[in-house]
């Protein structure tokens, strides 16, 4: 296995063009991902696609700057917190629907959450909340899978030595 010539590690020897373009592109990719998540209720897109696009911005960051720098910036612990937050948001909205429907057990029937006075507006807002939860979970899980695939054993030791 060519551990010396593949530059997935520290990101040394990266070109200035790639790094600058990555710095410019990453915020716009993330903004587009947020647009896809929010727009997903009324058109193409949704939580899953937006989450994948958000995760692909981290993939681009890893390609340009290396896994050690990206791992310091977006740690495994933050990843675990984020993907459980998304699941809790999803399930929590569903349980709120059960609570506010007063025993009618309308799981994920968003209209019953009293965010506004209109049933349809409640439904749209609840859908957005659930999409945000899905997006957070998908983003964290795909980033975690990619980081774990790229990470090599010696770099883990190096990173623990830095901490």
């Amino acid at each position: 296995m060519p551990s010396k010539d593949t530059d997935t590690g520290t990101g040394k020897g990266g070109s200035i063009v790639v790094e600058t373009m990555t710095r410019l592109m990453v915020p716009f990719i993330q903004l587009f991902a947020l647009y896809v998540i929010i727009h997903g209720a009324g058109g193409p897109g949704g939580g899953f696609q937006g989450g994948v696009i958000f995760a692909s911005s981290f993939v681009l960051y890893v390609i340009a700057f290396g896994i050690v720098k990206a791992g310091n910036r977006f740690s495994e612990r933050a990843n675990i917190v984020l993907f459980s937050t998304g699941v809790y948001l999803y399930a929590g909205v569903g349980l709120l629907c059960i609570l506010f429907s007063y025993g009618a057990a309308q799981f994920l029937n968003y209209g019953y959450i009293p965010l506004t006075h209109h049933f349809e507006e409640n439904r749209a807002l609840g859908m957005d909340l659930v999409e945000v939860g899905i997006g957070i979970t998908v983003m964290a899980v795909i980033t975690s899978i990619f980081f774990n695939l790229v990470w090599k054993r010696e770099e883990v030791g190096e990173r623990e030595g830095e901490d």
Binding site: M1, T6, T8, V36, P44, G45, G46, F48, Q49, V52, I53, A55, S56, V59, I142, I145, F146, L149, V150
Partner: peptide, 25 residues
């Protein structure tokens, strides 16, 4: 369009990155 969106994001984006990361091993 929705399926196309998913295919372009997952199939062309994420899966390619995963496979190249696996190939580097």
């Amino acid at each position: 369009v929705d399926v196309a969106f998913t295919e372009a994001a997952v199939g062309a984006g994420a899966t390619t990155a995963f496979l190249i990361a696996a190939l580097s091993r």
